[in-house]
Design a protein around this nucleic acid. Structure first.
Lengths: 199, 199
DNA sequence: ATTTCTTTTGATAGTTACTGTCAAATTTTA
DNA sequence: TAAAATTTGACAGTAACTATCAAAAGAAAT
């Protein structure tokens, strides 16, 4: 999380990190205050004291300012840290839950707000779901490696699909019930998947 | 499929249906020939001999011309036609497979091309996935009704999520392997879900 | 058949996300 | 301090949409 060591970065890179953070911060604030669609890139640029051109150099799209995250590497680490006696499903479940458990209170708050905004605004939701297909592919690769199969093996793909689908359903529910415990919801949902989707 | 009885529709409605069909047909052709992003709404409008304004009256977005479909009602009918001795998962599986089996060869071809285009173009894929959340909600409602639970019951939501996730993974795979049998892929994937995601 | 009412259409003008280009400003390196 | 590389802002343009309004076309009524 710490933006590398400050000594190892030149002034240029430090400034870049600062600019990026400023853009994200003002964008988030404006989105909250005015709504996502009502906020223009020009307004964000003005608030962050940069030109609109510069905004698009940092974030290829307006959506990106909200959607860019680094959960995938966190998930990878958490997954690979799981003991090998766990089944793939148990490992994914543990990895996801512990990745959330490792987050600070601030990070959790940010995540909740972000999720709420993303799942509420159709454009953002669409883009976020699209991103999840990458995570799905990632899970397929992780599980393939762990089980000695190919990532495009039918069982592996189906497994990854089910995991992502469950995540989507939890994210949607969580957006409408922000007071719930996200990790708890996810854990419960994945446990049901583990139990063979009892009904 | 037949656009109601021709006698019951006035000239106005007949013309509207014709216009809509013309837009979709020319749009699809242009998308194939030039690519989705390289095709402008203006070009589609010109080909369909309407004004751009009119295009947006028929389809709120350029994406919509490709994404609008009526599979949900078909799925509802197929699901509710399943015998009550089937488990919810078996019923969904049967419903989906038989809904595809009921399609004509032409419909299947269209579906394959559409799926390929949609899953290949990021914008379209995002919008399509977003639409799937509606289908997810629909499945939750159907299953809730069938099992006497609430649609926002955790087990029901998780169930619907898993189904949709599996669908996504199949659609992605099918886009890259157009010669595969879609119904077969879906059937196999859902059978694995039924078997508890064996790995 | 002609008039009246309603719906559909096209033209126009505007907004906004995004792209490409280039010269000026800034930082790094020599 | 000079030269090289990078970052930035200004400018011009494209294309998806939105809103508005008058004209055209179809439906209904007389």
């Amino acid at each position: 999380m710490s933006p590398d060591d400050k000594r190892t970065m030149g002034l240029r890179e430090r400034k870049k990190a600062k600019t990026m953070a400023a853009i994200q911060m003002h964008a988030l604030r404006l989105f909250r205050e005015l709504g996502y669609n009502a906020t223009t890139v020009e307004q964000i640029a003005e608030a962050a004291e940069i030109s609109p051109s510069t905004f698009f150099r940092y974030f290829p799209t307006k959506e990106d300012v909200l959607l860019r995250d680094n959960y995938d590497p966190v998930l990878v680490d958490a997954f690979e840290a799981q003991p090998s006696n766990l089944s793939p499903l148990q490992a994914v479940r543990q990895a996801m839950v512990s990745a959330i458990a490792d987050m600070s209170a601030d990070e959790l708050t940010t995540m909740r707000e972000r999720n709420q905004l993303i799942m509420t605004v159709p454009e953002l939701r669409a883009a976020a779901l699209n991103n999840l297909t990458q995570t799905m592919q990632l899970i397929a690769e992780l599980v393939a490696k762990r089980t000695g199969r190919e990532p495009d093996d039918a069982a592996v793909r189906t497994f990854a699909g089910a995991i992502i689908g469950v995540n989507i359903s939890v994210m949607l529910y969580y957006a409408e019930h922000p007071d719930a415990d996200f990790a708890g919801l996810l854990d419960e949902a994945l446990s049901k998947l583990e139990a063979g989707l009892p009904l």
